[in-house]
Design a protein around this nucleic acid. Sequence first.
DNA 1: AGTCAAATATGACGAATATCATGTTTTAGG
DNA 2: CCTAAAACATGATATTCGTCATATTTGACT
Lengths: 235, 235
Amino acid sequence: MKPTVDHVECKNCSTRFQSVFCKTENDRITEIDAEKICSSFKKGETIFKEGSYASGVYCINAGKIKLSMLGDEGKEQIVRLAKPGDIIGYKALLSGDRYSATATTLDDCNVCFIPREIFMRILQKDAAISFEMMKILSNELRNAEEKITHLAQKPVRERVAETILFLKETYGLDAEKNINIALTREEIANLVGTATETTIRLLSEFNKEKIIELAGKKIKIINLPKLIKTANIYD
Amino acid sequence: MKPTVDHVECKNCSTRFQSVFCKTENDRITEIDAEKICSSFKKGETIFKEGSYASGVYCINAGKIKLSMLGDEGKEQIVRLAKPGDIIGYKALLSGDRYSATATTLDDCNVCFIPREIFMRILQKDAAISFEMMKILSNELRNAEEKITHLAQKPVRERVAETILFLKETYGLDAEKNINIALTREEIANLVGTATETTIRLLSEFNKEKIIELAGKKIKIINLPKLIKTANIYD
DNA sequence: AGTCAAATATGACGAATATCATGTTTTAGG
DNA sequence: CCTAAAACATGATATTCGTCATATTTGACT
């Protein structure tokens, strides 16, 4: 466990109303506040590992995190990207199992650890939080099923385009209109579910076709309609 | 909506203790019983359609059901198989969205419809049921993420073998030791995420290699260790 | 500033798997 | 029992995509 850092008060947390605690009353928030442990992680650090026992959930205050599983041949598959306001590690806690994925920071991060017993006690007492959790889980599940369908049916080129759109939706744009996340080509490949070389080639193609603009890990969308068309999505 | 049929009482339901209501007290069960609507569907009928509004959840009393999404080119992807004791349609209800999948019976089925308000009211009042729901959702999500990883990383041959094992786990064996579900080759393909012809070929290969025995839609596993090895799973 | 490792890039090649075509078998319905 | 449609089967071919090889560039750390 990381050493405690400057305690971020939930009630002042900028992500409070986008999080699972959005509907929660102030006294419950104070209760969480009293028992959580805030820590910080530097870019590239591991918060928890696939296969280890779950002792609580992490609420992200600042930074970006990838959740990945190892395939049979040791290849990483990124199954989720998390941002401030999201919580991670709840699946294992709720199913009473070990972590099914590894959480790695993509940024310097501040996260608040809520121990198992506290989280469970709150779910027991607070139907609104339980309901929000179910909503989150339902949405995640719908997204996962859609991803399964696309992985099974769409060609890689479309999936790469789709992933660029997904990254934009998830992390937004920075001041220069670049997608606000720096992933290696390998990480993008592990998100798309394809080989690294294939991803590199397709990104270069999109670049040549003036759909996106590349500068190192920075990606800027310069022809959104064409990108959407390339992704073959109409909703 | 189907006409009401013989009312199956929850408290006498054979699946009661495998279902989400396993931890529920009798008076709550009586409450559900009073308001639910039992109906029956013949093989091949649609219980609900992707894109339509969710008005409640269905609890399966008897029969087998597939949940499938349509891909962009109109191809079916089976995202879940349900059996007695399972509930379906909860995702849409919880996320407040429309059904993201279509539910089609694979058998003659008896299902109990629990209207939205009743289900919501019960979740509000009963923390144990809420908690069971979260458990179910968490497990589904873990399975979905594992499926994503395998779809992205494993060759079709392994996935077909894996799917046969999955079908056995889900529906068990009949009196003649056949896997207790009759799917068309196309449906198996839509579960695996591959072309129908490829599935046909691979099943024939497994047959020739004495891993399975085929008789129409009946599949019998005759060399389980080899099937597990072919699926390339070691857990 | 210099060095080394990691990341990016690109070509050549081959394997896996989708697609197309066509024929056979099974099944459901009258 | 007969017929049509659906499901199954199999071969030939096309194509996507992964793998391997090899540069080149970038970035992190003395």
